[in-house]
Design a protein around this nucleic acid. Structure first.
Length: 896
RNA sequence: GGGUGGUUAGCUCAGCUGGUUAGAGCGCCGGUCUCACAUACCGGAGGUCACAGGUUCGAGUCCUGUACCGCCCACCA
């Protein structure tokens, strides 16, 4: 007897999510539990910036990780998803600098110590925000192991790594042109200075020859740097250059004399063939400067204003920046210089110019190349073991297309500038004796020089943030100590991250893993797509096109968010979301959750307190529909599991979706309703309960909240049982039944055909009709008769005969040749009926013609695999039968 | 400049090693508040799979080229 529904008809995620998450936490469901024979499965989170707030990129990336973790947890692995945050040197320092700017102060007003303390205060109060937000989307991280890259233990690891590299000779002081951010006042690595296509101007400037015989013209995008020019170069084989090589020209504005030299690096095709050389403010000019032993004067200060600022002057201390330009911002100076040049007739022309400009990845300022001294890591020795391992097949990157990009970067790896002129971060542990100039790296802060006992100074700079995050897979487990966690959870398994940090982070983690641990940090790198808006623009704060994942959680629930992200995009593909229409964008997830909720309401009402078990049933008691849905469940488990194993999360989600909605709800539940009210309802109950538990288990990784909630509401559930800890559904080959699939498929087809006729003839939904089916054979007859009741009810029939009764009405022919007639004596318009049937016949004929031609083709029959040919012949047979029956029907009706 | 991905229904996308009548969600059209669900149910329309060649018995699927869009890398100032 059906129970009254004790659930409302609409799912309210807000009412259950927080409580469920708390329950999982309290039960320690996220903490790995060792057991005999249990293999660990480890994911380390890409640590978000400690000042960060959750955006859709995090949402996507962390949902994927959570799906994988929950899947492997259910499969019995000892799963650990390790969370934490990154101190994010530049980003965090910027945030706090902006904060104190509101008080009218700069970090220099506070001083180093006070400023760092201020950042700590900020981090301590707001640093857990993003982790709390991850909880809201259901991330099942082991929060007891949360790490921060500035934790004392982690700091020890960073320092240990620096000192080891120093001892191995892999760290050196480089004197060269690096990328400098005049706003952040720090050096940047190559990766941190991002290219942006920009339309700028190409200025053609005349440099007068000192002998008065004319001038040479150079093209430049940065006229202000001419103050620091120390040569003009031209390609040695460029005929235009020959008359000038060896001569001298006068710098416009300052009148300083510089030589015209030959250098093979010049691209003859570009500009005028003559290139101005500013060795202190351009990386390639620096190389030229080295080759020709040129002076390298700095004519810009660290903050981007003009001014003599040292550099390598080769003993010539002549000021190069005229007084009227000193202190001027570089872009103001550019304008002024262009104006001056123009006034002096030295500006030949200006062209619009498309080129790539490097910008600071944190503040977007245009980066200024600048001669400077920085600490570098020699990367080649670190990259080689990774490349070797890659070629041994030890690493897997999905999607595979990223492998080429990865290899290209690794094979052409460049040394890594790791020093940053910041205050927030790991202080570089290099010490210098102010007396004897001895310099060394130290694991502890020394009180005095070990050589002469003199006073020591520590390098003022801090390390690049990535110099700490590249140790994440092992520093989080207590390295360099030999801890139980390190032994158990290193190496990890899957690393899920965005492709834009493939070089910043992933490649470097691999290098650190092999170098310091002797083995890879993870087995598979899963690179996610990018979340974009409908114009395919990356979602970003500055564009204002972002969607707040937490707003989605509030509006539609965490499961709706997760569903849309997982089912909406395939492996590594970009996910396009419409920020202007959240309701439509997240409707699939919300609707699906609601559907699950309502299926549960129904099932719950049908089940007794003691749920009958499938295994206790006599298999002979199963009906066709039972065998069919159990077969479909088996296939859903097998295919869903296989898809997850291959990281095809979307496929797994969609397959389960199809099973629960398209098969279980739309057909099985509808079929089984009368049986649930009958005396022998126990079989239907057992099948229903079995399928439902399967569904909840399969879907839990993607939509954990609602599945857990419904699982706990299932009758017969013991207190404290959690779906999150329940075993993954296992396929049972006994239930696989192609026969049941085909037979129930015929039943569905018959019902659909009748419904179709009803709709076409506008039969009122409540009208109960008579119908007759002339089955194509004995087997078909047996099947249709077995599900007689089902067809009757789902097609809204009064009577259904299968004994060849002749009815007047609308016709259909099923693919097996079975004939369906729906009695519509008065309502039938013969011409309409003829048209319907002949349209159908025409369609069939066309297909059959193509198939006939194919099978008449000797090379097809000779060359195609036998099973393909056999299959096509079967198809031909079936279509012919269907066609013949249809044609006979048409002529019987007297259609022309 | 070098790589690399995309172009399939109005929209967002599946379609894995070439072989059923190319699919889904949303949207659209028609009909239903049928006792789990109108965030639902039933029925339906809609695609010469960017274009041009080629390989093959057979191509949305493989190859070449073209066009457009995108991403990564790169010292043409």
């Amino acid at each position: 007897m059906p129970q009254p529904f004790d659930l409302p008809p609409q799912y309210d995620p807000g009412a259950v999510e927080v409580g469920l998450y708390r329950t999982w936490m309290e039960r320690g469901a996220f903490t790995p539990v060792a057991a005999p024979g249990r293999e660990p499965y480890v994911i380390v989170i890409p640590p978000p910036n400690v000042t960060g707030v959750l955006h859709m990129g995090h949402g996507l990336n962390n949902t994927i990780q959570d799906v994988l973790i929950r899947f492997e947890r259910a499969r019995g692995r000892e799963t650990l998803w390790l969370p934490g945050t990154d101190h994010a040197g530049i980003a965090t320092q910027n945030v706090v600098e902006r904060l104190i700017a509101k008080e009218g102060k700069t970090r220099f007003d506070l001083g180093r110590e006070a400023f760092v303390e201020r950042v700590w205060q900020f981090v301590r109060t707001t640093g857990s925000t993003i982790l709390e937000q991850l909880k809201q989307i259901g991330a099942s991280c082991d929060w007891s192991r949360t790490r921060f890259t500035l934790d004392p233990a982690y700091t020890r690891a960073v320092r240990e790594v620096f000192v080891r590299l120093w001892e191995e000779g892999l760290i050196y002081r480089g004197h060269r042109v690096i990328h400098w951010c005049p706003r952040c006042l720090t050096a940047l690595s190559d990766e941190e200075a991002e290219f942006h296509e920009t339309t700028g101007a190409l200025y053609y400037i005349r440099y007068p020859l000192t002998d008065g015989s004319g001038h040479v013209t150079v093209a430049t995008t940065r006229p202000e740097t001419l103050l620091g020019d120390t040569a003009i170069v031209v390609h040695p084989e460029d005929p235009r250059g020959a008359p000038f090589i060896g001569k001298r020209v006068r710098l416009p504005i300052t009148g300083i004399e510089i030589p015209v030299l030959a250098d093979e690096s010049v691209e003859k095709e570009f500009g005028t063939g003559f290139v101005k050389v500013t060795p202190a403010h351009d990386a390639s000019d620096f190389e030229i400067g080295l080759r020709h032993d040129l002076a390298m004067p700095l004519v810009m200060r660290e903050n981007g204003t003009m001014g003599d600022d040292g550099g390598d002057r080769k003993g010539d201390a002549t000021p190069r920046v005229p007084p009227e330009l000193v202190g001027l911002d570089r872009f103001e100076a550019r304008k002024k210089i262009v104006k001056l040049l123009d006034a002096q007739g030295l500006l030949a022309k200006t062209e619009s110019h498309q080129h790539a400009v490097r910008r600071c990845y944190r503040c977007d300022s245009i980066v200024e190349p600048r001669l400077s001294d920085q600490w570098f890591v020699k990367m080649k020795p670190l990259a080689e073991p990774v490349l070797a391992a890659y070629h041994r097949g030890e690493l897997r990157i999905v999607p595979e297309r990223w492998q080429a990009t990865f290899l290209n970067w690794m094979e052409n790896i460049r040394d890594w500038n790791i020093s940053r002129q910041l205050w927030w971060g790991h202080r570089i542990p290099v010490f210098t004796c102010t007396r004897c100039r001895h310099q060394w790296a130290d694991r502890a802060d020394p009180a005095a020089c070990p050589k002469c006992g003199g006073p020591v100074e520590q390098d003022p700079d801090v390390l690049d943030t990535w110099f700490s995050s590249w140790l994440w897979p092992f520093a989080t487990f207590g390295w360099p100590d030999d801890t139980p966690d390190l032994r158990r959870y290193y190496p990890g398994h899957t690393l899920v991250t965005a492709p834009e940090i493939l070089f910043f982070w992933v490649a470097r983690m691999l290098m650190a893993g092999y170098h310091f641990m002797g083995k890879k940090p993870f087995t598979t790198v899963y690179l996610t797509g990018t979340v974009r808006d409908t114009k395919h623009r990356r979602m970003s704060k500055s564009l204002g096109n972002g969607i707040d994942p937490l707003a989605v959680v509030r509006l539609f629930g965490a499961d709706a968010l997760r569903w849309t992200l997982i089912a909406g995009g395939s492996l590594g593909a970009d996910v396009i979301l419409d920020s202007d229409d959240l309701a439509t964008t997240f409707a699939p997830g919300r609707n699906f959750a609601n559907k699950l909720w309502n299926i549960a309401r129904f099932i719950q009402a049908q089940l007794p307190a003691e749920v009958p078990r499938l295994s206790a049933l006599d298999p002979k008691a199963l009906t066709l529909a039972d065998r069919w849905i159990l077969s479909r469940a088996q296939s859903a488990i097998a295919e869903g599991t296989a898809a997850l194993e291959q990281f095809r999360l979307d496929e797994a989600a969609k397959r389960c979706f199809e099973f629960v909605w398209g098969e279980l709800a739309d057909w099985y539940v509808e079929t089984v309703k009368p049986r649930l009210a009958a005396d022998d309802r126990v079989v239907a109950q057992a099948v229903l309960a079995h399928c439902w538990k399967t569904v909840l288990g399969l879907l839990h990784p993607v939509v954990p909240f609602i599945t857990e909630e419904l699982w706990q509401k299932l009758p017969g559930r013991r207190a404290g049982e959690l779906l999150i800890l329940a075993p993954w559904p296992t396929p049972d080959p006994r239930w696989a039944s192609p026969e049941a699939d085909a037979q129930f498929g015929a039943v569905r087809q018959a019902i659909t055909a009748i419904r179709n006729i009803r709709a076409e003839y506008r039969v009122p939904p409540k009208a109960r009709l008579a119908a007759a089916i002339r089955p194509a054979g004995h087997a078909a007859r047996a099947t249709l008769e077995a599900e007689h009741e089902t067809i009757l009810r789902l097609a809204q029939l009064e009577t259904l005969t299968t004994d060849g009764e002749a009815l007047e009405g609308a016709h259909a022919v099923l693919t097996d040749g079975s004939e369906v007639v729906v009695a519509l004596a008065g309502a039938i318009d013969l011409s309409q009926e003829c048209r319907r049937l002949s349209d159908e016949l025409q369609r069939l004929d066309k297909q059959l013609d193509a198939l006939d031609a194919k099978l008449a083709n000797e090379s097809f029959v000779a060359r195609a695999p036998a099973d393909v040919v056999a299959h096509e012949r079967d198809k031909q047979q079936a279509w012919r039968t269907q066609r013949d029956v249809l044609a006979a029907k048409l002529s019987a009706l007297g259609c022309s």
